[in-house]
Amino acid sequence: MTEMLPAPPDVSSLHHEVGSALTGFLDSKDRSAPGAELLHLTSTLRKLLDGGKRLRSRLCLYGWQAAGATGEPAAAVRTAASLELFQLFALIHDDVMDDSDIRRGQPSAHRALAMTYTDDGGRRDRAEAHGLGAAVLLGDLALVWSDELLETAGSAPDRLAQVRPLLAKMRSEIMYGQLLDLQTTGRLSDDVETPLRIIRYKTAKYTIERPLHIGAALAGAAPPVLEACTAFGIPLGEAFQLRDDLLGVFGDSADTGKSVLDDLRAGKATVLMALAVKRASPSELGTLRSLVGRSDLNEEQAHVIRAILASTGARASVEEMIAERRATALAALDEAPFPGVTTASLRGLADAATARQA
């Protein structure tokens, strides 16, 4: 008689525990804080945690499930939660670098901390400097605490030894992607390859591939499982960011939780903009050069840019690129050595990530 293998743990139910793990961890930090001043930072961190999609933690748990879900579920949950703290570190510093006002439908960390400073009686002419400095510290704190949460998650030493190199690679990759983003912002160009490289390192590997890898490593994944995670994760991650670039210009702020003017005001180097520059008429190109990157860009001027992005076919081409990459990711799932429940969940995630409005 064939022995029945146990069903993999239900990742959707485990994912609900990620929030509890984060809350419990921050509660312990508040209790052991050296002074009440630290709550000035952790209260902001808690508010930012409330508004996220928690995609990376979900993918970490899917990776763990894909590789057999061996080891303690609680350790997998806390490891997944550590990725959410690392994500906050990245977002907080990203908003400082981009001078963004809004994150997850509320003031970005440096704006919130500036407002708190004046609310507490601080001088208004010091508020901005305080907000920026405190946000850098908050991001650093989130990074340090993400490490602590991972190291105290309760993973077996041999599994943790498999995770650490993947985490180190993930961190180096996102820093490289962020550097490329900084170097190209404000430089209108028809170069499509560089924004694609930014997408791969800043989003595809960081958002999809590495969280899957880390979760899979927690379960002692064999190389074919890790390779399948890459084959699925890279194209889906690229499609995810291409959708994000479209939403950053054509989306609704009420859905996305951030301004639809920020990318245009900053002059972000996106595939969408590069395609428009490559195909624009001399008149359209002149308009793009005069408007994209203006810090005082208004909605009426943004409407003119959007019209050019549509008339050049750039918007339609990006939609095609999203569809192609989604199809590649789904085809990779057909060959992946994952349990059926994981494959089904990842298919649903691929649909949601590429057709989303937020």
Rank of each mutant, 00 (worst) to 15 (best):
T2E: 01
P9C: 08
H15T: 03
T23H: 11
G24I: 04
L26R: 03
D30E: 15
P34M: 02
T42E: 01
T42I: 00
R46S: 00
G51V: 13
R54P: 02
L55S: 10
S57N: 07
L61I: 09
G63I: 07
A66D: 00
A67H: 05
G68H: 04
G68W: 00
R78Y: 13
T79A: 13
A80R: 03
A80I: 03
A80M: 04
L83C: 09
L83Y: 08
E84G: 06
E84W: 02
L88A: 13
H93E: 07
H93N: 13
V96H: 09
V96E: 12
I102V: 15
G105C: 10
Q106C: 02
S108C: 13
L113A: 09
T116Y: 00
T116I: 00
T118S: 15
R124E: 15
D125L: 06
G131W: 00
G133F: 01
A135D: 01
A135K: 03
S146W: 10
E151P: 00
P157I: 04
D158N: 02
Q162M: 08
Q178W: 04
R187F: 09
D190H: 09
T203L: 07
L212F: 01
A217D: 03
G220A: 12
V225I: 05
P235H: 09
L236D: 08
L242W: 02
R243M: 04
D245W: 04
G248P: 04
T256I: 03
K258E: 13
S259Q: 08
D263W: 06
K268I: 04
A269N: 12
T270W: 01
M273G: 05
A280L: 09
E284N: 02
L285N: 07
V292P: 05
G293Y: 12
S295M: 11
N298L: 08
N298I: 10
Q301K: 09
A307E: 15
L309W: 11
V318M: 11
I322G: 12
D334Q: 10
P337S: 12
G340C: 08
V341M: 10
V341D: 08
A344M: 07
A344D: 15
A344V: 11
G348W: 05
A350K: 13
Q357Y: 01
